[in-house]
Design a protein around this nucleic acid. Sequence first.
DNA 1: CACGCTTATATTTTT
DNA 2: TATAAGCGTG
Length: 675
Amino acid sequence: MFDDQLNPEQRLAATHGEGPLLIVAGAGTGKTTTLAARVTTLLERGVRPERVLLLTFSRRAAREMLDRAERAGHREAGRIWGGTFHAVANRLLRVHAQALGLSPGFTVLDQADGADVMNLLRDELGYAARTKRFPRKETLAQIHSRVVNAGEKLDTVVERHYPWCTDEVEGIREIFRGYTARKREQHTLDYDDLLLFWKALASAPATGPHVAAMFDHILVDEYQDTNAVQADILEAMRPEGTPRNLTVVGDDAQAIYGFRAATVHNILAFPERFPGTTIVKLERNYRSTAPILDLSNAVIAASAQRHEKSLWTERTGGVTPTLQACLDEAGQADAICRSVLGARERGTPLKHQAVLFRAAHHSDVLEVELLRRNIPFVKFGGLKFLEAAHVKDALAMLRVLENPHDEVAWFRVLQLPEGMGPASARAVMERIGVRRDDDLSPVVNLLDHPIEVPKGSGEGVQALRSALAGCLDEEVTTPAAQLERVRTYLEPVIARKYASAVARIADLDQLALVARGYERRGRFLAELTLDPPAASTDLAGPPSLDEDYLILSTIHSAKGLEWDAVSVIHATDGCIPSDMATGDEDELEEERRLLYVALTRARDELLLTYPQRYYKRQKPRDDVHMYAVVSRFLDTADVRAHLDERAPAIDVREDDVAAATGTASVDGYLADLFG
DNA sequence: CACGCTTATATTTTT
DNA sequence: TATAAGCGTG
């Protein structure tokens, strides 16, 4: 089917028969096409779709590949098991929960929830009240995740990655022990548990062979960003002595998830771990023009220890990438706007252009400028929506109904009524038996029995009760209907507790919109946690076809994507590499690969910008500023040879003043009126 | 014990 | 830019 569209290496990979296969696929070498073609080939050979497992980094990626297979004439491709390791673990564990001693109705904690559980423990164990500073809950969650995913001892991890916490390691240990116990009591699993229990399921003599036999073929995308536990899972799913039909695709030059304990070792050592591996290298780049590829190659050339490969392209010609120095962030925003609008004039729609940056907040100034100029955009990365307090409030209401032993959810819910604080919430939790292991009784206890609450909070607690009771109504079964009920309850609560209530309540409506796609509450909650909306548009539904918008994205979220024109902003030392990541050589190398990933997203045009001066924005009108220098990864002769360097524009601010007071602002005002 | 106020503090990347 | 911790009041 795909044969005429594939080059010889791609065809080799797509049509490979049995046994382990490693595809080393450089940036832009048609990795997705090849993997989709391989899926298609398998189906054509009669492999049943429900016996194929396709593990990707995001659900978006899985969907894209399965769509391609469907378009190639395989409508049954939708029956393939596709998704992230975590999402697949969730599905498998629901089925096999009992064999592992888990409750099949377990709920999933995201990292923030896990941090909240640790915070409860930190309070209870008395670490919060001490005078000496103790790691914050977010730090605790990070340390925990690193320990689990890397499979390293707590002491080693703290010593190597969190040296400032070494004095507190005993306290951390105590909290971690309590954390594990608490998760079991509550019937909750965190992200790390999902992987660990999958590994346990696949390794246990009783269940392992059964689970491994579910699939004839396993395919894994972005293998360079998997961690030790994930590699163990794959080995357990393809045990020796069985046909080890396992395809992994990756590029060690694009490994950017070391902070999540991903290890390049997985891809480098794959052939040893799976003897008899066939290796296919994809080196022909179809994406970028030669000047862009030359620059990318020059940046990554300085990187040690990687699979030998050299990308080449037939797309000769094209424009040399530009390195634009700007006076300050405002100048940078201006340069980006001009560049974006210029490209659009030349025929590149906004949708085919992207602005990339290291950290989510790096686009703040640019976003304001884009709004001012009426340039529509969508931002990916930065997990804002689910982290907003009011969204958590609404979800916590559903969570206590789904899993009445979920302590963190109760703790949040019980502090919603006026007059209820942490201490009263704890008392009520004790009273209704959140930590007693009997089904549903905590909810029933709250609804049916009189509970002592502080003076003045009686009315609020009663409102909460009727909201929860309303959700148990036989008519109100879908998550959307329950959210509707929750919204009615939360409206006055949000108005009392938070500023900008209107916007926050609008968020709840968006949440309800997502919920409409789900019949069952448990599934809604789990999928929301495992595959959170990546951008605001994910919530608003697909934008209409004629709608055009610029893409803003963190480099991490841009993985695997491509655009005609790409701008990378804040290309300074301090941003790329991040100041936080210059500690050791490995971290620094990861930052270099991050820049490489950003550069290789571009097809035709590439613009790098950096502000020479930026203001430390501690206070709004602070005049304290610092001078920045260009990223060290760009500051070598080898790299500069591939860049067209531009000095800052003389002064953009006169222009800005004219724009703000002249036709632009009037026209913008009118455009706003016309909607 | 809750709540409102002030002040410190840290702010990478994401399943 | 928040959000978390610290402190005084009711």
